[in-house]
Amino acid sequence: MSEPVLTIKDLRVSYQTPKGKVRAVDGVSFSLMPSERFGLVGESGSGKTTTALALLRLIKPPGVIESGEVHLAGKNLLSLSEEQMRRVRLAELSMIPQGAMNSLNPVATVNNQIIDGLRDHGVNSPKHVLNERIADLLKRVGLEPSVADMYPHELSGGMKQRVTIAIAISMGPKVIVADEPTSALDVVIQMQVMETLIGLQEELGASLVMIGHDMGLMAQVVSRIGVMYAGKLVEVGTVRDILLSPLHPYTQLLVESLPSMESKLTRTRRPRGIPGITPSLLDLPAGCAFRPRCPKAIEQCSTITPPLEKVRADQWTACHLYGETEKQDGIPAKA
């Protein structure tokens, strides 16, 4: 059995706010096999984007990575110097940011933006070699070579997102982190861009961490899903297990809230929302953060925070309801 390419252990990230410290990511652990696609889902404020940024050590003050380990191909990224980390980004671990509309430099051509990344990582090929490499990259993401000389405002949303994908794969990284890569795109374009991204990820043999809140997209793109709630992973499992036999009451309600295209005339249930509201990270309830909204809460939920434990093969959850089951702690990884 092969070794995981990325392992995250007990990651904690906090932000200092005028009202006190907020822990946006609170003890997140998971690991990723080579060429695996893993999805991180959660409501806004659940800590999924903060987790992604922390992997690349891109948390900016007042945020700090308090503790934890991020192992990528044998190195702990959190103990590297800033210069060593800079070399890892793009080359080994790259990111496709949320909202490609705003992540490109509006006053630089596509060509120059791709070259910037390559030169920063020591690619010193002569101009004509670089130009060929860029034409090839653009072709791989489904763009014409002429796009190289264009500015972002001349491109459509889908084309801009393709440019960010070209940048992300330009150095052949081991892991790509994609933060809602298609949430701003129309559904037909989303499908085309996603097909390009997945095709390239498979071709490179890279692993993908995809962040998002669209369970439909996740179900179709990744093989395993981690569900976050109030800074913690509450469940990790395969797409099939998460959708068809979820363990955590939050995941169960989340799945029940999803819209369905099944005929309204014959289906047995209608999607319904989750009652209550997401708790403020400044004022989390004691014990399990989901307890105030949970229809199945028991006594110890209000005092003891349940740890993330393996309940079934390949399925981990943080919930006291499974207290009697044979459990196993550690880092949720693909079986």
């Binding site: 559904v187 037909v188 989303q190 499908m191 439909g216 179900a219 179709q220 295209m261």
Partner: peptide, 20 residues
């Protein structure tokens, strides 16, 4: 038809990628 086929559904039995 294209629009409906393009929607990724939270259904592990739907085939979305490569269905275009």
């Amino acid at each position: 038809r294209l629009l409906i086929r393009s929607i990724p559904m939270a259904d592990p039995d739907q085939k979305w990628l490569g269905s275009h």
